[in-house]
């Protein structure tokens, strides 16, 4: 068993373990953390397949952004998960059926895809798929790529114009004023005669 295979089995085992834990642990924060582990180990598998771009994006986008947001939501909402777990046996048959259909579809696709084809040839060590993707994105697909950027800009403008409103009644902190505040503004020294104690 080569080194590569050992790496593969270690990360696959971690992935399967983390995946199982996501759906079995009771604490939603722990479940989210296990999902992070699952993403991380699958990104290692991508690296093993020499798909660096996918591996990096998976860590940056999913672990870095999506899961942090998700954790925020879980922590802020304080969901009571016990009612969600009820009726496990009731939904089991439907779940099993869906799982079987998905397995059958995957078997069909994978079976037909690879029956006639051989495994694609490996590229050399100097081959960089990030550079290749970048090359295609900024040359052949530069026009759709820029359009996608414009769509994101429009989404930002739309979101801000629909949500930003000045409400004069709301109390808020003004850090600028807080920093500039001096002792004299807050503290009033009152001179009083000492009280005589007979």
């Amino acid at each position: 068993m080569g080194f590569e295979q050992i790496v593969f089995y270690v990360f696959s085992a971690t992935l399967l373990f983390a995946g199982t834990m996501v759906i079995t642990v009771r604490n939603p924060v722990h479940a989210a953390m296990f999902l992070v582990l699952a993403f991380f180990s699958s990104s290692a598998l991508w690296l093993l397949l020499e798909a660096e771009f996918l591996a990096i994006v998976l860590v940056l986008v999913y672990v870095g952004a999506v899961m942090v947001l998700f954790l925020f939501v879980v922590m802020m909402l304080d969901i009571n998960l016990i009612p969600l777990r009820e009726g496990f046996m009731r939904y089991l048959p439907v779940g099993v059926m869906i799982a079987l259909v998905v397995i059958a579809m995957m078997a069909y696709v994978v079976g037909s895809e690879f029956s006639g084809h051989s495994i694609p040839a490996r590229h050399g060590a100097d081959y960089n798929n990030i550079a290749e993707l970048g090359r295609i994105l900024y040359t052949d697909y530069v026009y759709p790529f820029e359009l996608a950027a414009v769509i994101l800009l429009v989404a930002i403008i739309a979101a801000i114009s629909l949500t930003l409103r000045r409400r004069p009644m709301v109390k808020h902190q003004d850090p600028d004023a807080q920093v500039k505040v001096k002792k004299e503004d807050r503290l009033r020294v009152v001179k009083m005669d000492a009280e005589k104690n007979n």
Binding site: I151, I157, A158
Partner: peptide, 10 residues
């Protein structure tokens, strides 16, 4: 189409 629609929704 998406660029147009998104602007119109807003």
């Amino acid at each position: 189409l998406e660029l147009l629609s998104l602007a119109l929704y807003a």
